[in-house]
Design a binder for these strands. Structure first.
Lengths: 252, 252
DNA sequence: CGTAGAGTTGAAACCCATCAACCCACGTGG
DNA sequence: CCACGTGGGTTGATGGGTTTCAACTCTACG
C-alpha cells in the first residue's frame, strides 16, 4: 500500500504532460484543430481506486479507455472464480479494442491502483474517423499494434521457459515506463505475484523463485513490489537467447 | 501429396460460391454498389503452390490477402532457420493485419497447398473505408476479431495442457471448415505434425502421441493427414474441462 | 532399390506445478 | 500495546507432464 503512494507521486508528475488523449495514443498526423475535435469527445472521469471496474465481461461495448496514470489489468473471468489475466495496461495504453467485434466486452478490466482513466465513446470516435482520414489510419495502426503485441505474447507463451518469460515481462514493463518518462530501472509493481504468474502462464511459486534467482545473479534487486534493475543487458540476453530449433524447454 | 488432390477437389467446389471478396470477410451492411466498389480494387492472382510466399518478414506492407481456397501459414522466422508458426489460414480468412502498424511485414506467409489468394491493396482499401462508414466499421470489427482470436490462443498456450491444446486446435479447424461449407468431421491437414507442434508450443512427438491416444480413445480416426472426427462432443469436453484455479498442468 | 523426410514409439531426463510449511507485513480488536 | 488472524510472498520436497534423445517404420521419390 505504501508503494502505491510512491508510484502515484511519479505518475502525477507525468499526468500534467499528458493532459489530452491525442498525446497519449493517437499522436501522429493530426492538425491542431483535429486534435481539438478528438479531445472534445473524450470524457475524463474522477480517479478510480484499486479494484474498481472499467467494465465487466459481457457488458455492452460503448467506449474505449485510455490509462492516463496508474495501471489496469484486463482478464477473462471463468466460472468458479478462476481468471486469466490478459494484460497489464500502463499510462498511454488503450483498453477495449477487443470488444469492437462482438459489440460487447469479452473481458473485464479492473484498476490495480489509484488511476486516472479517459473514456472515449466509440460511436463518436467512429464519426470522427470517417471525417479525418489520418485519424482513421491511426486507429488502424492502433488495432494492428495490438495484434502485433498479442503475437509477441503468443511467442512468449509458446516457446519460452519460465526464466525467459519473467525477464521479458520485466523488460516490457521497463520499456513502457521509459516511454512515458518514468524510470526504466526503478519501479513498483502494481500487480501481485499471483497476477504476474497468471499472466505469464506460471505458478506463483515459480515467479517468486525466479525473482530471488534474478536477484542472486545480480540482475536486479527486489523488495516486495519494488524492483530495481541492475543489469538490463543481462535480462536482454536471457530473452534474446533463442533456442535454435527446439521448442519449449531450454535446448542449448 | 495425394491428399492434396482430395482437399483441392473439395475447395474448388466451394470457390465458385466465394467469388468476391465481400462474401469472404467483409459481408455485412454494404449495399450492392459498395460491394461492387470493394470488389473493384481486389486483385485476383493465379493459383499459388505449396511453399510459395505471399510475403516475407521485413518486406514493405502493401496489401492484405484473403484466402479463397487452400491454406496458408504465417510464421515469424528467427535467425538460425528456426521459426514460430503464428497461424494457419483457411478460406475466407484474412492475412496481413499485423503489418499495418509498422508499415512492414513482421511475419512471413507461405502457401501450404495449391491455393487461390485475393490481394487487397491497403491504400486503396483505406480510400474506400473513408467514404463508406459501414465498411470502416467492418474493418474495425475485423481487426478487433483478430485480437479476440489472439486472446483465445494466449489462453490456450498459457493455461492448457497438451491434450487440451490439440483438441482445441482440431475443433477450431473443424468449425472453420464447417463455416465454409466443408465437412467438419472429415478433412485433410495441410500442415505437418511439426508445424502443428510448433504452432501449439508442443514437441512433434507429443503431437504424434496425442493423435494416437485420441484415436485409441475413439475420439477420432487418423491416417497420416486424413482426420475423421468420431466424437466431437468428446473433444469439446476435453477443451471445456476448465481447471478451477490451477495453472498449467491438469489439476483435476 | 536406396535415400530422405515425415511420422511413430520407447526410455530417460528435466522443468515446472503441486503440496506443504513457513515468514512477514499489516490490520484488528481485546 | 500486544496477541491474533489474514493474505501475500518465500522456500523446500515431491511428482508429473513434456521434452529430449534415440531407434525405428513408412511413404514418397529418384
Amino acid at each position: 500500500m505504501t508503494q502505491h503512494k510512491v508510484i502515484s507521486f511519479e505518475t502525477i508528475r507525468v499526468a500534467c504532460r499528458n493532459c489530452n488523449l491525442a498525446t497519449l495514443c493517437l499522436p501522429m498526423g493530426l492538425c491542431p484543430e483535429d486534435v481539438e475535435r478528438l479531445d472534445g469527445i473524450v470524457k475524463r472521469s474522477r480517479p478510480l481506486h484499486r479494484g474498481d471496474y472499467l467494465f465487466r465481461s459481457g457488458e455492452r461495448f460503448r467506449s474505449l479507455y485510455v490509462v492516463k496514470t496508474g495501471s489496469v489489468k484486463t482478464y477473462s473471468p471463468s466460472e468458479e472464480g478462476g481468471e486469466q489475466v490478459l494484460g497489464f495496461h500502463l499510462p498511454g495504453e488503450i483498453i477495449g479494442l477487443d470488444a469492437i467485434e462482438k459489440d460487447c466486452h469479452i473481458c473485464s478490466a479492473r484498476v490495480l491502483e489509484t488511476s486516472a482513466i479517459c473514456e472515449i465513446p466509440f460511436a463518436r470516435l467512429e464519426e470522427l474517423t470517417c471525417c479525418i482520414p489520418s485519424l482513421q489510419h491511426q486507429m488502424f495502426r492502433l488495432l494492428s499494434k495490438e495484434i502485433g503485441h498479442d503475437t509477441d505474447m503468443l511467442l512468449l507463451l509458446g516457446k519460452r521457459n519460465a526464466e525467459e518469460r519473467l525477464a521479458a515481462f520485466l523488460l516490457s514493463l521497463s520499456r513502457r515506463l521509459q516511454k512515458r518518462g518514468l524510470s526504466p530501472y526503478d519501479f513498483y509493481l502494481s500487480m501481485s505475484r499471483h497476477e504476474i504468474g497468471n499472466y505469464l502462464g506460471l505458478a506463483v511459486e515459480t515467479v517468486s523463485r525466479l525473482f530471488t534467482r534474478f536477484q542472486d545473479e545480480g540482475l536486479l534487486h527486489v523488495d516486495r513490489k519494488h524492483v530495481m534493475i541492475r543489469d538490463i543487458s543481462g535480462l536482454e540476453s536471457i530473452v534474446g537467447h533463442q533456442p535454435l530449433e527446439g521448442n519449449q524447454q531450454r535446448s542449448s
